[in-house]
Design a protein around this nucleic acid. Structure first.
Lengths: 111, 111
DNA sequence: TGACTATTTGGCCAAATAGCCAATATTGGT
DNA sequence: ACCAATATTGGCTATTTGGCCAAATAGTCA
């Protein structure tokens, strides 16, 4: 694997890595319902607000969310709603066995 | 966030976490083209074969790949091809983060 | 059985991550 | 200017991760 390819995959992997934490995944889900400010998320999650802020910066640097300061609060929203679509797939994978529905079509089934 | 919810999100996050490494992402991509044995992947990636094996076990435990021993080699294949579908989305996020990137082909996004 | 190949596992260490508290912005109100 | 409210950053520690080497396991073939 050459350097350029490795860099490219590592760059793309950063997005998955950002989603690879329960709290961040929860926040992305929540942001999928609409924008939220930091303390909204803090109350929902329950961790220290600095922890929430750091998680949000991970998501922002991965390009998954955008921030918008209004007054003395910062509202976050999902910048790539497409991530919500594959949550379903991932939940199937995580909950075991379910992804069969997504495997190669069994004989006689449409694509 | 109650314990059950936290557990659920952390369980789902494990799948993303498994994809959150350049080498593993590369291997998933490669497995998307067909099954490969460990040494095939080792040659493609270039790391130590024990490192490859450990990456594969991460993917297997996440439910993303399955292994099939035939003779003295073990063939891995993608058990959830749906992950390939959102690679496009993620590449768009990583390469600019604009939602528009998902509607029109981003420049230089050859597969 | 033993030699050989393919893969996995354990040990070890460097680097990255997550979480909390404290300190520092940044904004709004008085 | 000062203070309160919101959010971010720095510092610190505990835990996890990634990679290599070496050792162990699984299977084939003679």
């Amino acid at each position: 694997m050459d350097t350029a390819t490795r860099d490219r995959f590592h760059r793309h992997a950063r997005v998955f890595k950002a989603l690879g934490h329960g709290t961040r995944l929860f926040m992305v889900r929540e942001l999928g319902r609409g924008e939220r400010c930091v303390q909204d998320l803090q109350q929902l999650v329950g961790s220290d607000i600095s922890t929430i802020s750091k998680h949000l910066s991970v998501l922002r640097e991965a390009g998954l969310v955008r921030d918008d300061r209004r007054g003395n609060q910062v509202f976050y929203s999902l910048s790539a709603p497409c991530v919500l679509e594959f949550m379903t797939c991932v939940e199937g994978v995580a909950d075991g066995g379910a992804p069969q529905a997504l495997l190669e079509a069994p004989p006689g089934a449409g694509s």
